[in-house]
Amino acid sequence: MKKTIIAILGIGLCFSSVHAQEIIKLKPTQKKCIQVPEPSDIAFSVDGKSLFMVSDNGYLFETDLEGTILRKADYKGLDDEAVYVNESHVYVVEEFSRKIKMFRLPDLVLEKTVNVPYNGARNKAYEGFTYNKAKGVFTLVVEKDPIYVFELNEKLEKVNEINLGDIARDISSATYYDNHLWLLSDEDSTVFKLNPNDYSVISKWKIPVLNAEGLAFDAKGNFIVASDALQRLYYFSNPENN
């Protein structure tokens, strides 16, 4: 029996070592525990002085850059999984209800709700939302089975859909920075840089974060990843300088 066990484990180890891919592994420069429970996505404010975060249990927060809560919207959502901020509004995406909620930035009051129907599995739906400046469309990303990118117009109506195929086992966040679309995969612990026009992968980096659910870049290209399970923020230096 010992031989069988050793053989099986040996096969596993051989497979893993022989096929190791050449992807750069990033190390966080620091990590911080935060007050926001189960953070599921993050976004920098336009001036870069604060963060907006949503949580699985349906809350929207604004925090300082250390994750300390500054204010909380008077709202209870259903499985909030994505957040995006522009000069006038905060957009929150509810995975359960398939709704995008627009909050006024100054007072975080809900102004508009738009339904974007999707008949995939309840917990394999919208996980990322951002604005693709290169194409002038909002980008709504489906987590898995399959990984879709839905392009939405200014009225948040679906105008195009792209199947990203086997880019990753899942996508847990999306953001736009430096004229590129950036995606985060929780199950693959990987950050992807994509061409915003054809969604081809340009680069990717491994990150040692458990249950990575949120991705946001500051003006210098440094980025923050939110860990849902550990309720932490991980800070990374600009990956393109590595």
């Binding site: 359960f96 209800s97 398939r98 709704k99 339904n115 129907p117 008949n119 995939g120 599995a121 309840r122 394999k124 089975d145 399959p146």
Partner: peptide
């Protein structure tokens, strides 16, 4: 494309 769902926003 495994599971499918039907939703009215409140009931899935």
């Amino acid at each position: 494309q495994a599971q499918i769902s039907i939703s009215n926003g409140e009931h899935n």
